[in-house]
Every structure is written in C-alpha cells, then in structure tokens.
Design a binder for these strands. Structure first.
Lengths: 210, 210
DNA sequence: GGCGGCTTGCGAAAGTGTGCACAATCATAC
DNA sequence: GTATGATTGTGCACACTTTCGCAAGCCGCC
C-alpha cells in the first residue's frame, strides 16, 4: 500500500464487508460492482476505485469472488483477529452496551467493565464480568493492555476517562458520551450519538413540506 | 437560503448546537470561531464558513453571542418543535432504545412501539407505551402520522419495515439494523451500527504498531 | 475620538474525492 | 478458435470541500 488511503474509503469498507458476509451466507459465489452498488446505494465505480487502493481482486467479465473479497477485506480491516475492549460506565446505557450481542460474533470482546459509582462496583454484569472501580483502570490497563475503550459515562466525566485511556496507550475509543473528546494524534475516536443523527434529519424534514 | 447547502455542513451543525447549549448552560455569553474549533477539533474557518451559509450571526472583533447562535441553529435544524417517532422492534436493542432518556429532552418523543412477536404485543414498555402489532403499523400511521421511524428489528425484517414506513409517507428513518435500507429519494436515512465504527478503527489499529 | 487588537464573512486558491469512459481481459458459446 | 457480451481497473476531468488571506467592522482604552 504505497499511497495514502483516504479516510472516507476506510469508512466504507466495513459496509462492503458486511454485505459480502451476507452474500456468502446466502451462498452467492460471485458478485459484480454493479450489484454491490445497488445493494449499498453507491456507484459501481466507487466500489471498484475503493477496492483498487488495496489490490486487484476482481476478474474482468466476471466480477468478484465473494469468498476471495471477503477474505481480503477481513485482512485489510484487521478482522482476522479478536479485539479486546474495556467498557467504562455501567449506567443505563453502559449496561445495554455490555449486554449487546452484536460485538462478540464480529470479533470484539468486552474484557473489563468499570464505573465510579461504589454501589455498582463489585456487582456482576451479564453473569460474567464483575464491575471494577474506575480508579483501578489505569493500573489494570498497564498490567493487561486492551485495544479499544468504550466510553459510556456522562458528558462531564467523559474527558477524564478518555485521558486515562489515552495515557494507558489505547489506540481507539468508541464514545457514546455526548461530547467531542480531545485526544492526541494517532488515537482513533468514533462517536455514537443517535440524537445527532436525528438532528441532522430534522433539518431536511423541515424543508420537505415547506 | 437561496443556494444549496452541502450535506456535510448539515451534519456538522448538530455538534455545534450541542456544544453551544453546553456553553450556555455554563453561562458563557460570547464565543469565537477559534474557541468553538478548539473544542470540536475543526478549523475556525470551517465553522465560520458553515455558519455563513445561513446568515451573518457574528460580530467582528467579538465573536458569536452564544444565546443568539443557539437560537439560530435551533431554528435552522428544526429543533424549535417536538418530533414524533415510532419504534419498531422491542427485542433487546429496541427495549434499550425505548428506555433511553436522551431523546425526550432534545425534543424527540417515541409515541408508539411495535413488534411482530405475539408475546411482546400487548405488554407495557417503560410504564407508558403498550407494544402494538407491527401488522397495525400501516393503519396507525395513516390515522396518526409521525415524523420519524426507528428501526430496531433483525436484518432480515428491516427492509419490510422500512417499506411500510415509506409507504406511510414517513420522512426520516433511524436504523439500528445492520443492513443498507432501500428508500426512494426524499426519505432521510441514518444508520447506527457500533460494529461498523469499530471495524473502521481496527484498520488503523492494525497499522499503528506495524 | 482616534488607535490597536481582534474576529468575522467571504472570494479565491488549494486540496480531495467522485464518476466517466474506455482499453484490457475473461468466460462462454458455437 | 474465434466472436460475443460482460466487467474490471484506472487516467482524467469535474465537482465538491476545505483552507487561506484579507478587507471590513467592532470594542475598549487612553
């Protein structure tokens, strides 16, 4: 991979991968950029261009082997290994995240959960994980590093938690907190906030009927 | 608003709005694009340009009145009214969404919940809403339209639900289902899938230490 | 009441990303 | 073995976004 790959391209790859695994499960053997594009609402040219950053995976006149392309994307995205995550915050939201069944099948394991609330500390979550004190987070991470931190604490505490994770050398943070986290370059952050998504849509709704 | 506003701009406005309401709560009266940019990790020029699509809200030498700018953005985004939503799917995920306390304070109300599962239909959710049969969705929406649909059903059922919502004339859909929904032009769709976010980050994690 | 320091709004430049269009290539059928 | 129809990979042009740079304007101080 000699040249720099645009971030937008990276962000599209997971959706390609997701569709491909579906196709594979349905027994589809070969797929064209045309078909992929129709299913994902993007132009075939974009799909071909995106994939061409990483290699030449297709065959003219045929399309892409679903098996082959799935494997390639899995390697590119780093999904051929399991990733260890810690969850900080076990309030309503954090508890829901901890019990979400969608992470594990995709190779993401929550290996530790933390909270500040003394009443929550020590309780069991999901029958396996014991909630630890967030004060121990730095030490725990030093002893036993993880790859990704999930932040599910109130806005006011989010930056402090992020700082601890960053200091521990974490490389990626998935934040459910409604604040923009400050992190040094080299640390990946994605934010999940359904309200922001809704607010982006209401702009258009307002203009629809007017 | 004579000219067309880029979609990327619209998608940034909610984060501006969120920060501004925080500032307002903290009693800050005036803020510069410089300060906003530092808090949000964007360039001051971008913030000024984004806002300039909608009007001239700042004062040279001073900055922006937090009050004024908050009000302007609220109007622009359509947040000066309440929005009615229906939730389809009350499994693990749907239940968590229904009990999420973050929607109501921002003007988003879940006014109906639906499921296919006969065992779920009729039960109470969150002490207020009774789960209705998804078979009644089309009729209910015809009688009493809502603005936004939240889809929290398994991948295989998502498109069918989306079709019903679209047929009922819904303008916006927030989908938690792991599939790309097919909708006609004019219907807004946003997808929330933490796994996609994680997969976008693992690409970078892989390259970090290598 | 004028001067200095800031900060906006915006035209223009620079930088990115997307889509077109077509040569190259492959599978199949006859 | 050759013709046919399909589909990839990619150079190029266009379109879109971001950033720069600066004139215009505002505030406060002396």
């Amino acid at each position: 991979m000699p040249l720099e790959i645009p971030e937008v391209v990276i962000d599209r790859l997971p959706t390609y991968y997701r569709l491909l695994t579906n196709l594979q499960a349905r027994g589809v053997a070969v797929v064209s950029s045309q078909e992929l594009g129709e299913a994902l609402n993007v132009t075939p040219a974009q799909i071909r261009k995106d994939l061409s950053y990483f290699g030449r995976f297709g065959k003219q006149g045929r399309g892409y082997s679903v098996q082959r392309l799935t494997d390639e994307l899995r390697t590119i995205l780093g999904l051929d290994q399991r990733w260890r995550m810690v969850l900080i915050g076990v309030g309503r939201l954090g508890t829901a995240i901890a019990s979400y069944r969608g992470f594990e099948p995709q190779g993401f394991d929550i290996v530790g959960v933390y909270d500040v609330n003394p009443e929550a500390v020590g309780t069991e979550l999901g029958g396996e994980l014991v909630v630890r004190n967030v004060a121990d987070l730095a030490r725990d991470l030093a002893d036993d590093p993880v790859d990704i931190g999930i932040v599910a604490v109130p806005a006011g505490e989010a930056q402090a938690v992020v700082d601890v994770l960053v200091a521990a050398g974490i490389g990626a943070i998935l934040s459910y907190a409604p604040t923009a986290a400050q992190v040094p370059a080299g640390v990946e952050v994605r934010q999940i906030d359904p309200v922001l998504s809704l607010q982006g849509m209401t702009y258009h709704l307002r203009r629809r009927d007017a």
